[in-house]
Amino acid sequence: MFSRTKRVVCSLATAFAAAIAFTITVPSGHAFAIDRVQCVGGENFLKIWSHLDGRESVDCYANGGTTDFGSWWVDRISTGNNDLIYYDVNGDSVRIDRWTDITFPNNPPRVRAIQIV
Results as ranks from 00 to 15, higher is better:
Phe22Pro: 06
Gly41Ser: 12
Trp99Thr: 08
Pro108Phe: 11
Thr66Arg: 15
Leu52Gln: 07
Gly80Gln: 02
Leu84Lys: 02
Arg4Gln: 03
Phe104Met: 02
Gln115Trp: 03
Lys47Ile: 05
Asn81Lys: 04
Trp72Tyr: 08
Arg95Tyr: 14
Ala21Leu: 11
Gly54Ala: 03
Asn81Gly: 10
Gly42Ile: 03
Ile102Asn: 14
Ser57His: 14
Asp59Thr: 11
Phe22Gly: 10
Ser3Ile: 08
Asn107Pro: 00
Thr103Asn: 07
Asn90Ala: 02
Ala13His: 08
Ala33Asn: 14
Asp97Val: 11
Thr103Phe: 06
Ile34Phe: 15
Trp73Arg: 12
Ile114Phe: 03
Arg36Glu: 10
Glu56Ile: 03
Phe69Gln: 07
Val37Phe: 00
Ile77Glu: 07
Pro105Val: 07
Val58Cys: 13
Val111His: 15
Ser50Asp: 15
Ser78Ala: 09
Asp68Glu: 02
Asn82Phe: 10
Arg55Trp: 07
Arg4Leu: 07
Tyr61Ile: 08
Arg95His: 09
Val111Pro: 13
Ala21Met: 14
Asp88Arg: 00
Cys39Tyr: 14
Asp88Ala: 00
Val94Tyr: 04
Ile114Gln: 01
Phe104Gly: 05
Ser93Phe: 09
Lys47Arg: 15
Arg7Asp: 01
Ile34Gly: 15
Val37Gly: 06
Ile96Cys: 00
Thr103Lys: 11
Lys47Ser: 13
Met1Asp: 06
Asn107Glu: 04
Gly80Glu: 05
Thr5Asn: 11
Ile20Ser: 00
Ala33Met: 15
Asp83Ala: 12
Lys47Pro: 02
Thr25His: 04
Asn44Ile: 01
Ile116Val: 15
Ile77Gly: 03
Thr14His: 01
Asp35Ile: 08
Val8Met: 00
His30Val: 14
Ala21Asn: 07
Ile96Met: 11
Thr5Trp: 12
Ala33Gln: 12
Arg7Pro: 01
Arg36Trp: 02
Ala15Asp: 01
Asn106Tyr: 12
Ile116Glu: 12
Phe104Glu: 11
Arg76Ala: 09
Thr23Gln: 06
Phe22Tyr: 09
Arg36Asn: 04
Ala18Thr: 13
Asn82His: 15
Tyr86Cys: 10
Arg7His: 04
Ala31His: 15
Val9Gln: 14
Gly70Ala: 09
Asn90Glu: 12
Pro108Tyr: 12
Phe16Ile: 00
Val40Phe: 11
Val37Lys: 01
Asn107Asp: 11
Ile34Ala: 09
Asp92Glu: 08
Asn106Glu: 12
Asp35Asn: 15
Ala13Ile: 10
Lys6Leu: 13
Thr14Ala: 14
Asp68Arg: 09
